[in-house]
Design a protein around this nucleic acid. Structure first.
Lengths: 201, 201
DNA sequence: GAAAAATATGAGTCCAGACTCATCTTGTCA
DNA sequence: TGACAAGATGAGTCTGGACTCATATTTTTC
């Protein structure tokens, strides 16, 4: 069962393509041409299609990669003692990780318009579910701890996360603006904001 | 100087195309094909190109239309006595108007990626400036009245507006979720949330 | 180190969608 | 109502970008 027949250069190329695709999608959105990715990765276009038979699969691979990172981060934070801090930390991590990934937010937003085919099968739905579960844990615990307003659920949070990713990216040139923006949104999420308003850092 | 040589049917067609384009872009994003718009508008594709020589110009026309509406709304609200309410009302109007316009939010977000050429000339920049000015008035007055936190400026607000448009649209199927989402964001914007927290409606 | 298998190459195919234009139709105006 | 210019038509052109495949290069294996 241990498939070990992958040639070393093939593995290297695959990683390189994935990496490049991530950067290119971030810069030009998922509409960026496969040819550009191939060129920047220093391989022929045929090589890209060998590893990712369709463009949708390439896009999917990039997202699965990102989502995995975020899910891992969420799971780790879920073990923290301070449920409130864990929640807000995740939100911040999310904003940071998303900041450079325009296409990421896009694809999440329409969830299956750009990557219809891919969204139905493969690793994508699994990772997405995984992430959702981890985030839900964070939210529930933070609400139980009285740190987050209790009138919102996963749908609200999801929509908010996606839009935060976009908003933050929009002002990526100015970290101060980013911070204030994030702070504003987080303040809205706090439970009965009258109580636990920490001093501005 | 009064150019009055526009044939009646031409004016009708133009309006029809604009209207249809708005709907189609809303449904499928700005990548929707010109041919589809022509078909749904009941005209030949050549007619679309007669009125809007390039696709970018068609997209621009649709946005200018929307932006004008919003600018008008903002200007009107700016004359209200209650600066705080005016600000929050505008936010709500914005969210509603944006709710059905995916491409609208997109185009605003990247402000000149999809419509590069168009953004540089024509009515677009003018209307955009107009809207920005009206919104700035609303913000400044609301802050002066102590209704909105004073640590944010137009950049933060802008990014927030765009993200709200997206977020709201994402959950357009559920008005309750929409309301809670908007409420969360507005709460974050209020000044020293400790003071003026109205009862949950 | 040579055969075999896996992988890389990139010119070429194919197609969708923007845009053109020769020709036909219709509103306008006297 | 006739004439003519503005407008409409849609088959056809052109282009960019996804995807293929015959051939050339590696790796791997023994």
């Amino acid at each position: 069962m241990v498939e070990k027949a992958i040639r070393a250069d093939a593995r290297r190329n695959r990683a390189r393509i994935l990496e490049t695709a991530e950067a290119v999608f971030a810069a030009h959105g998922p509409a960026a041409s496969t040819e550009e990715i191939a060129r920047k990765a220093g391989v022929a276009i045929g090589t890209v299609f060998r590893h990712f038979p369709t463009k949708a699969e390439l896009v999917e691979a990039v997202f699965v990669d990102r989502l995995s990172q975020l899910a891992a981060s969420a799971r780790q934070l879920a073990e923290s003692d301070d449920a409130g801090a864990a929640f807000f930390d995740f939100f911040t991590t999310w904003a940071e990780l998303s900041a450079l990934k325009q296409s990421f937010a896009d694809a999440l937003a329409n969830d299956g318009v750009d990557i219809q085919a891919a969204a139905e099968r493969g690793a994508y739905p699994a990772v997405r579910t995984e992430l959702a579960a981890a985030v839900e844990t964070l939210l529930t615990r933070a609400q139980a701890a009285g740190a987050v307003r209790s009138d919102i659920g996963m749908r609200e949070l999801n929509a908010l996360l996606i839009s935060v990713a976009r908003a933050v990216e929009q002002v990526r040139d100015d970290p101060d603006v980013q911070r204030r923006l994030l702070c504003t949104i987080l303040d809205g999420l706090r439970a009965g904001t009258a109580s636990a308003r920490p001093a501005e850092s």
